[in-house]
Design a protein around this nucleic acid. Structure first.
Lengths: 169, 169
DNA sequence: ATTTTATGTCAGTGTTGTTGACATGTTCCA
DNA sequence: TGGAACATGTCAACAACACTGACATAAAAT
């Protein structure tokens, strides 16, 4: 273990353990908001995750989605079929590689994804405001969470997020 | 919405949305570590959560555990029976109220809980070190996550965490 | 003495994950 | 060109973990 980490572990002490617990509580409430909305559509968290990533990264392939979600194609297909069947997501055959299915949100899909991200954004904004991280160092929360990602996976996440369509700017 | 929050939402802009996504990736890898250990014991995440909270808050009652985990007593009982049956947790009848079952970890339970918290602490320590939050403002990550908790629930979480046994100090 | 509370348990169900096997169409390569 | 590799879809069985509803017991509170 590098010195910085050992040092951080000592410095943090029990607060590191507190962080573990707070992450549980934070995540518990974080997913609670969308759950209530999704229930009205007969959808679950699995549907939410698919909808979210397809909305944010239009043209995502099945393989890419599988790599992001870390589930099997059978699990993905179940929820994807629901979302496509009910008109929230559409597929297009890939142009360069016709084996691929590129995924896109329909207008209804984008609308629902927007509703879902809105409630979560609100919670995040409140957390930033309450913790006074927002003004002082708005990126520190981001960099902390990024640091929680498995090191070998960070490049992939960075690559994905860099690909995002900047529409709200 | 209070001005500070609206302001934070604007300031954060897309970074708020990035935080949502990073929280997904962070949590995905965060629970991945313990999962590998638990699988060797034939346990799952539900067992982990129970073991963790009983280890950290010895003497917890069933009702308190239910309130923390936000699951039904039937769900809790299934995993709790496993943990008791295999000697990781024991029950004692409450002294002031003999209806209550106070939960405690056995030596084996504490050992396993320790193994689990160790791998997670390592990840948190690395995240703090990598994000350089550790030295600058070690509490900002904590306060951010605390801010993610439903406001009405924060007092309960604070009360719980204040109750912790300070043994490692 | 009755009601309420804390807990335990049985039975059935739903979502979301898994494995294994197999099918189709597309691309790539020798 | 023909076969291997790849991207995807699908069927079936199964496991973990959540849910609801109903009912039981012992202890506490009124």
């Amino acid at each position: 273990m590098p010195d910085v980490e050992a040092d951080a572990l000592r410095t943090a002490g029990d607060s590191g353990d507190d962080l573990i617990e707070l992450l549980f509580f934070a995540y518990r409430d974080f997913v609670g908001d969308p759950d209530r909305i999704l229930a009205q559509y007969g959808f679950g968290r699995a549907h939410h995750r698919v909808l979210h990533f397809v909305d944010r990264y239009p043209g995502l392939t099945i393989a890419e989605l599988l790599d992001i979600l870390r589930i099997t194609k059978q699990s993905l297909n179940r929820v994807l079929k629901d979302l496509i069947g009910q008109g929230y997501i559409t597929q297009k055959t890939g142009t360069s590689d016709r084996r691929q299915r590129l995924l896109f949100c329909t207008a209804a899909g984008t609308a629902l994804a927007g509703d879902l991200i809105r409630v979560q954004s609100r919670r995040v904004a409140r957390a930033l405001a309450d913790s006074e991280i927002g003004r002082e160092n708005p990126l520190s929360a981001e960099s902390f969470l990024f640091g929680m990602i498995e090191p070998e996976e960070r490049a992939a996440v960075r690559r994905l997020m860099a690909r995002r369509v900047r529409s709200a700017a």
